[in-house]
Design a protein around this nucleic acid. Structure first.
Lengths: 198, 198
DNA sequence: CCATCTGACATACGAATCGTATGTAAGTTG
DNA sequence: CAACTTACATACGATTCGTATGTCAGATGG
């Protein structure tokens, strides 16, 4: 029964990823020890090297899992909203909130880029930025937005939300900061100049 | 002559920082070896620990030096421009270009936040974000901008430019990407909605 | 001018961690 | 059932870090 074998392998990988997520989130990538990591999962470094090729490979797998979860959560939110614009704004705010979660911020936003480089070169095509880009293109097709390069704009938007999330997460009063950030983002998205309408 | 002593110390620290900048920029913080680092400067790890307390302390010193240089360069650019708005835009574009420089991107934008945490908690108050914030406040006083929290907006702007710089630096055609990014930033800054004027 | 002391920096050592090379046992296939 | 593949553990060497200690030049006070 080849099925049983596959299941056990998948389970082993899942255990390693789960353990790594906790360790990376708590101590950061650099301070995470592979021996502790794997022991927590009831395994040794041998399993880690076999399945993921090394510490960086494990980080890639962890990030991929987290991004998939983020995409799922974002898709659910984006499908709501009366207009495409509302969906875009709600999705952006949801992304901002997720980026404030310690696990996501630490692993995918801080350690990820530092260890693996530019997110767009990661294992699978970057889900969150891709989603933002598609929203922008849809809005341009609807004639709601001015014409711009959708990828460049998606990068700007994602970066802005990341910058804000870093601020919120380290603010003395994160809740208040979050409210200010959302307000500022709405202003930025709808126009900075006073000559623009809200 | 106490002056001579101080000079030699300053020279030693400068040599270590210079060597560290090159190593961090070329190999990244994690892959930089302190023995190689210090040997390149004609010293040993003893000097490094004595003056900077360790690897992270050296990174802090390097980042501080880089940020001071960036602030100097930005100030020169921001003092130009017919209006405050122009100065703000020119400063933002200049920041975007600087963020694309490998040394700055690698050390202060990738490794810095990952190793030392949120930039606003760094040794001295963060210069670049602070500058952005002051520009925004000035623009609000002039009545050019809508009312928003200046710090939150500065974080969004800085984050956006960082996100774009990461994209540009890794693009197949960085020059073309840079043009698109600037164009998109101008659109973002002046208003995403079509109901807004350029 | 000299004795003492402080501080800048080097050397020595131990501990932790990584990557690889090898071993083993279980499962798979013909 | 025999040969082979593979999932995973163990063993080993190489690096690198932090600290503890040593040393020598220069500052200081009499």
């Amino acid at each position: 029964m080849a099925q049983r074998r596959e299941d056990m392998i998948a389970e082993t990988q899942a255990k390693l990823i789960k353990s790594a997520r906790e360790s990376f989130a708590q101590h950061g990538f650099a301070e995470s020890c592979m021996d502790d990591l794997t022991a927590e999962a009831g395994l040794t470094r041998g399993a880690l090297y076999h399945h993921f090729g090394g510490k960086k490979g494990l980080l890639k797998a962890v990030i991929q899992q987290i991004e998939e979860e983020m995409t799922t959560r974002l898709s659910a939110i984006k499908s709501q909203g009366p207009t495409t614009w509302d969906a875009f704004i709600n999705g952006s705010i949801a992304y901002l909130n997720m980026a404030c979660e310690p696990e996501i911020q630490r692993i995918t936003l801080l350690d990820g880029p530092a260890v693996l480089g530019d997110p767009s070169q990661w294992p699978r095509k970057n889900c969150c930025i891709r989603n933002t880009q598609l929203s922008i293109e849809k809005l341009m097709e609807e004639g709601v937005l001015r014409e711009v390069d959708s990828l460049a704009m998606a990068r700007l938007i994602n970066g802005a939300l990341f910058g804000a999330s870093l601020w919120i997460a380290n603010a003395e009063d994160p809740h208040a900061a979050s409210i200010k950030a959302v307000d500022a983002f709405l202003t930025l998205a709808s126009g900075l100049l006073k000559s623009n309408t809200a």
